[in-house]
Design a protein around this nucleic acid. Structure first.
Length: 422
RNA sequence: GUGGCUGUAGCUCAAUGGCAGAGUGCUUGACUGUGGAUCAAGUUGUUGUGGGUUCGACCCCCAUCAGCCACCCCA
């Protein structure tokens, strides 16, 4: 025990049980992505630090990313997010890609932070983006993708909700109460931090960025107005489109949602557990990102969801899938040295017929083989003892039902196919 | 990066500074061709790691590693 070499802090092992969940999750989000016509892609796991420094701010990258010099001395970053890579890839082939493009990805990301529940240093993330369409229909589609995912994994509107806001609306409202356009970014940051600061600190922060008491009062008024969306034809229309798809139950309007990242230009949204807990995913529209990395101005939007928090949420609401970890549902036992060849042959025949079959790898007591099958949740056990071999039969036991039957070997493939289909 | 809690058998957890335990699991048997139930016996440890204090340390002190919680930050 003490001589075991420990894994890297914050990195996770995927034993078959965890891997099964990861694969299940991948299947769910791949299915949703594909149903909306999105193509799977991926970026490199390594990027130059400049890609992130260009848009995210150097502090963020230097302190929260894995950065190391390669042998040539160049600073390399383990990707902390995918959107900059996406923008770079789009910009690099802007003239040959077919827009609007719908892309999705599921892969590993790294951030150098102190691990705790719901946050590790190595995690998987689903990214999905719609680039080259600036319409409100595009906005509504991205939200529909998110809602559909929740529906597919069994999370109801009572359990999770997607809060949405629009930076264009907030900009108009803030300008109307006398905030200058130069102060907008500061005010966004102020709004984003409200939940994370004490009221006094928040008020102090407001005066630090040069807001008057009247202005702050106006901002508080805006943030308390859950009907503010009615001033936005765009949001009103988006809600209509979602309503038409029966997905509006997941959506709530929240003027406090502004998101921390500077690059959002339109709608912003995040999904939360209704009973508190971390944000399950976040996203929004970014119309300047592609041009920021050197491409032609191209708008887009998308969101990213981490595997850790969604797993916690599913766990909390008892929505984790019950996955049988054994690919094989059939175990062929071996009885003794005399009959073992018959068992090997039987397993071979079943596999040839397309069935997943385990053959017990050594001659031990039948009880031990049965126990093995039981623990591995292998439901069907085939026994080929002297009696069966002599008569050309095989005995099949259904562990779940506790029933067993003996049939001719020639019928076993059909029998198992039929039984497994039930 | 800051503050706090925790670390004992494969797992869940006990043990006033004085013999390191229970449940569960595992092995074997009751049951010489049958798991999951029951019963019996057996088995499981450098108490995270490294130092220190003490006649004596799982217990107290220091360091370190890891996990968790709250900050910070959110990609």
């Amino acid at each position: 025990m003490k001589t075991l070499i420990q894994g890297v802090k914050g990195a996770r092992d995927f034993y078959p049980e965890e891997m099964a969940f990861r694969s299940w999750l991948y299947g769910k989000l791949a299915n949703v992505s594909n149903r909306f016509g999105y193509q799977e892609y991926d970026g490199p796991f390594l990027e130059k630090i400049e890609l992130y420094a260009a848009k995210s701010g150097e502090e963020l990258v230097k302190e929260q990313s894995f950065v190391f010099p390669d042998r040539g001395g160049e600073l390399i970053t383990l990707r902390p997010e995918l959107t900059p890579s996406l923008a770079r890839m789009v910009a690099a082939r802007q003239n040959e890609l077919v827009f609007p493009l719908r892309w999705w990805s599921f892969g590993p990301f790294w951030r150098y932070e102190r691990p705790q529940k719901g946050r590790s240093r190595e995690f998987f993330q689903w990214n999905i983006d719609l680039v080259g369409a600036n319409s409100r229909e595009a906005d509504a589609e991205m939200l529909a993708v998110a809602c559909t995912f929740f529906k597919d994994v069994g999370l109801s509107p009572k359990e999770v909700a997607i809060a949405i806001n629009d930076r264009e609306l907030m900009e108009a409202e803030l300008l109307s109460v006398g905030i200058s356009s130069e102060k907008l970014m500061d005010v966004y940051r102020l709004i984003d931090r409200r939940e994370k600061m004490s009221p006094e600190n928040w008020t102090n922060y407001a005066s630090e960025i040069g807001l008057t008491t009247d202005q702050l009062t106006s901002i508080k008024g805006l943030l308390a107005n859950t009907q503010l969306w009615r001033n936005s034809p765009a949001l009103t229309y988006i809600f209509e489109l979602l309503n038409a798809q029966g997905l509006a139950d997941y959506i709530t309007y929240d003027p406090n949602i502004i998101r921390g990242l500077d690059y959002y230009t339109g709608i912003v949204f995040e999904a939360r557990d209704m009973e508190g807990g971390r944000a399950i995913f976040g996203g929004g529209r970014y119309n300047n990102l592609v041009s920021d990395v050197g491409g032609q101005p191209t708008g887009g939007l998308g969101f990213a969801m981490g595997d850790v928090v969604i797993k916690l949420t599913l766990e909390k609401y008892d929505k984790l899938p019950r996955i049988n970890l054994s690919p094989a549902r059939i175990l062929v036992t071996v009885f003794d040295d005399a009959s073992i060849k018959a068992s090997v042959l039987l397993a071979y025949q079943l596999r040839t017929a397309g069935l997943n079959v385990e053959l017990y790898p050594e001659v031990v007591k039948l009880a031990k083989q049965f126990k093995y099958a039981d623990r591995k949740q292998i439901n069907y056990i085939l026994v080929l003892g002297p009696d069966e071999v002599m008569a050309g039969n095989v005995t099949i036991k259904d562990l779940a039902k506790g029933l067993q039957t003996t049939i001719p070997v020639s019928l076993v493939v059909d029998y198992l196919h039929k039984t497994l289909d039930e």
